[in-house]
Design a binder for these strands. Structure first.
Lengths: 148, 148
DNA sequence: ATGACTGCAAAGCCTTTGCACGCAA
DNA sequence: TTGCGTGCAAAGGCTTTGCAGTCAT
């Protein structure tokens, strides 16, 4: 579902791409703009549809390639919402983010955030023998509609 | 990597399958036994290899079908360790479990557990408008070897 | 005996790759 | 001008499905 356009992220992303030596091709720019409209989990195919609807169709391969670059640069986080399907989400430069509760039956995604959960994760991340760059928490079960 | 055989889980799983009305076919039983040897993330293809090595080869489709049943019954938890590849892990009836730190570069998986992280997750699970049945936390970054 | 279980092969599906053309710098 | 970026189509790789034979009960 599309939300208000996050131009701050969009500009930041384009700038980072430039700094990393990438050119500003039409497809890449279009994918960045499409992502700017999603606050939460979007799939590559949903972005493709968004772009086609906006009369700015982009080849599927270019979408995947753009997502790959953005993820490498830490501008996007990838995770699996539905079985076998990758979802992407913008990474806010401020570090502020949320996690997800996902319905097993209908796939509905409910984002949530919790400071103390974040603190616990930060503590654990520091304790583990890894240089942790990101984390992801997923809660799975039934949403209210599906639980009845 | 294989670890000591968890016969408690193995018996529990077979019993639950029986109670759910499933027959004790050879393939299904073999998959359950193979799973009993893994404390942490195993993929369907790794199980297939284990079984073939043990001279008890099981058709790939049967492995996937067995994993599906076990997951439905809550005896197994599925998650994505490597990109696009499903990993499975036994669910201990006691509720005791761990989470994972995964290396972006080499794929190494380091399990960890943390009581206060679990508490934070339980609290959040109760606050969200879902009937949460399971959760999963993944930390991603570079392991010591890959960070150098 | 009967329907669940199994294995093989084929099909599905998301994602990636090969390649020739177009475009940013 | 140069080689990165793009699109199309084909290939990949994990997972699922169809179907006929087999086995548990």
């Amino acid at each position: 579902m599309a939300t208000a356009r996050d131009t701050a992220w969009e500009e930041h992303a384009l700038e980072m791409l430039g700094e990393a030596g990438y050119r500003r091709g039409g497809a890449r720019t279009a994918v960045v703009e499409a992502l700017a409209h999603h606050d939460c989990a979007v799939t590559a195919l949903e972005l493709e549809e968004d772009l086609r609807r906006d009369e700015a169709p982009v080849g599927r391969a270019s979408i995947y390639r753009a997502l790959e670059r953005l993820e490498e640069l830490g501008l996007l986080q990838r995770f699996e919402a539905a079985r076998g399907i990758a979802s992407y989400e913008r990474v806010n430069p401020s570090g502020h983010h949320h996690h997800h509760a996902i319905c097993r039956r209908c796939g509905r995604i409910e984002p949530f955030e919790d400071r103390s959960l974040e603190r616990a994760i930060e503590r654990v991340s520091a304790a583990v023998p890894f240089e942790i760059a990101e984390h992801d928490v997923t809660l799975r079960g039934l949403c209210k509609s599906c639980a009845d």
